[in-house]
Computed example of a mutant assay.
Amino acid sequence: MHAGFSSFLPRPRSHRTTSLALLLAFALPVAAATIDDAIPAMQTPPTLGAHTLLTQSEGDGSSPAITSAVHTQDDGSSLLVLVAGHADNDATPTDSYANTWKLVGDPVTYNGYDARFDARAYIAIGAHGGKHHTVQVAKNGSPNGEISMPFIEIAHAGKLQDVAQNYPTPGVAARTANKLARAWEGVVGGPDTTSTLLTSGTVTTTGPATLVAVWLGDAYIYSMTAVPGDGFKVVDSYLHLPPNSGVQCAVAIRQVNAAGTYSVTWSGSPAQGAILWLFAFQAP
């Protein structure tokens, strides 16, 4: 009886603890691996990188027109270049890291200059970069002509999610009010204080994005303002031109952290129309 009963006695506690530890040791690595595999890699949101603005005034230009050198990321960025000036200088940009540039939409012709001037936008997605990065455009038609060329890097941006381009001008009521204001200022000898509000098209994002807004005014004036609203901040501008003229330009940026639909309204003085672009860059 005692021998039979002793065969069913419980095992010592130390033995049970050792067995449980062994089971956990084998089970935990598998569970941890499963949890790690289920967590997606975090993407770095896009952000403004290096940027510069090349300007050449009318009669003092040269070919090729070359931007100042900036330090861009080695890879993973998107690049944006706009070329505004004489329409016969229609060559595609090239850069010092041999990226491929793609025209975004069609060239936009300025109002009121007999189609002699236009503006074009180009992007390079998944671009190569590094130190002393420049962009240039051959000016085959009017080598000494005026040109403005913003060059903007959007770091950690693998795609152009959306783009809007429009060309608003002051409405009938605004034009009438501005005409009366100019007439009165002419009588009293005051400066032109007319103004206008111009709103871009809309872009829609699916997550964090860098929004790039570009304003290109069209009036034959030499000093002006162009102030964006809606959370945008100007990073480069050319708004006080020399007596021999140039292509007025302003570039503004806004970082957004969530999906949404966005636009920008520019306040400008004196009143004029403007070619507007709005780009939304996101991570791949």
Rank of each mutant, 00 (worst) to 15 (best):
F8W: 11
L9E: 03
P10T: 05
R16G: 06
L20P: 01
L23S: 09
L24M: 11
F26M: 11
I39E: 05
P40G: 02
P46V: 10
L48H: 02
G49S: 00
P64D: 07
S68G: 14
V70D: 04
T72S: 06
V83Y: 07
D90Q: 11
W101K: 04
Y113M: 07
G129D: 03
A138V: 14
P143I: 02
N144M: 02
G145N: 12
F151D: 02
I152P: 00
A157N: 00
L160M: 13
P168Y: 00
P170V: 10
P170Q: 05
N178E: 00
G186T: 01
T193V: 04
L198G: 12
T199K: 14
T202I: 05
T202A: 12
T202E: 15
T206A: 10
V212Q: 07
W215Y: 13
A219V: 11
Y222P: 00
P228L: 04
D230C: 00
F232W: 03
K233L: 01
K233R: 08
L241K: 06
P242D: 07
P243Q: 14
P243H: 14
Q248T: 12
Q255G: 05
Q255D: 10
V256C: 11
A258C: 01
A258G: 13
A259K: 12
G260N: 05
W266I: 01
G268H: 03
A274I: 01
A283V: 12
